[in-house]
């Protein structure tokens, strides 16, 4: 479903953020991407979402080279992917409700559908009381949960979760991981980028390990080894 083919991304001439990356992720897989800070996890996601273009190589989604898609048609790809951004990327002038509702409005959902789905995801991430607050009025962990809710609400085929538990306490961390597992059980492909050792060790799922922009391990039942 997703394939990176000899992908290299160079931001500054003297160091590559990603170097000759190749891997394949099948539909309904659960894959973790681990690596130290700066290893290139976020860059990987940005390439898949066409926020950045690769210096070399190709990125495929459903057998389509995503960097060949016309800019004005990119929204079709992005609607299939629910991304939890590491920096959340919430719309600052929209309330929690509107932030989550936006991705449903974009696909032309009706008001009732939106209301039902948004209420449900808000309940799942435990933010029912903050519906009408603005992002700046939330704690960092709460913002992170809004970002997760937004990535799930329109039931995308793929979830890219970039460090979704980075600012959560252990209780909420395990809640979110359980949630991702549950969504995965329902047939969604999940790619999780993290440097949380406990999560990786307890998941026992496929793990791709990055170091300095290169894939150094790709284990079926990964352990956190760095």
């Amino acid at each position: 479903m997703i394939q990176f083919n000899k992908v290299t991304k160079i931001f500054s001439p003297n160091s590559a953020a990603l170097e000759n990356i190749s891997f394949k992720i099948n539909e309904t897989e659960f894959v973790s991407i681990v690596g130290k800070s700066g290893a290139g996890k976020t860059t990987l996601f940005k390439l898949l979402l066409v926020e950045e273009t690769p210096t070399k190589g190709k990125v495929f989604f459903e057998n389509q080279d995503v960097h060949k898609i016309n800019r004005s048609q990119l929204y079709k790809l992005r609607r299939k992917i629910g991304m939890v951004f590491q920096d959340y990327k919430l719309l600052p002038s929209n309330t929690v409700y509107e932030n989550i509702a936006y991705v449903m409005k974009v696909i032309g959902a009706s008001d009732e559908d939106i209301h039902r789905s948004v209420s449900k995801v808000l309940e799942i991430v435990g933010l029912e009381e903050k519906v009408h607050n603005f992002p700046r009025e939330l704690s960092i962990g709460q913002r992170q949960r809004v970002a997760i809710a937004r990535a799930l609400v329109h039931r995308p085929k793929v979830i890219l979760a970039d460090e979704p538990t980075g600012n959560l306490d252990p209780y909420h961390t395990s809640e979110i991981i359980q949630l991702l597992l549950k969504i995965h059980d329902l047939g969604t492909t999940v790619i999780l980028a993290t440097h949380n050792k406990e999560i990786i060790n307890s998941l026992e799922k496929r793990t791709i390990t990055l170091e300095n922009g290169k894939v150094i391990r790709d284990d079926k039942k990964g352990r956190f080894i760095l």
Binding site: L49, E51, Y75, R78, M83, K89, L91, V103, V106
Partner: peptide, 16 residues
């Protein structure tokens, strides 16, 4: 600027 970029990334079309 920031909002428009976010809106693009979460799947809004240009005209939307």
């Amino acid at each position: 600027r920031e909002e428009i970029e976010i809106e693009r990334l979460v799947g809004a079309s240009d005209w939307f």
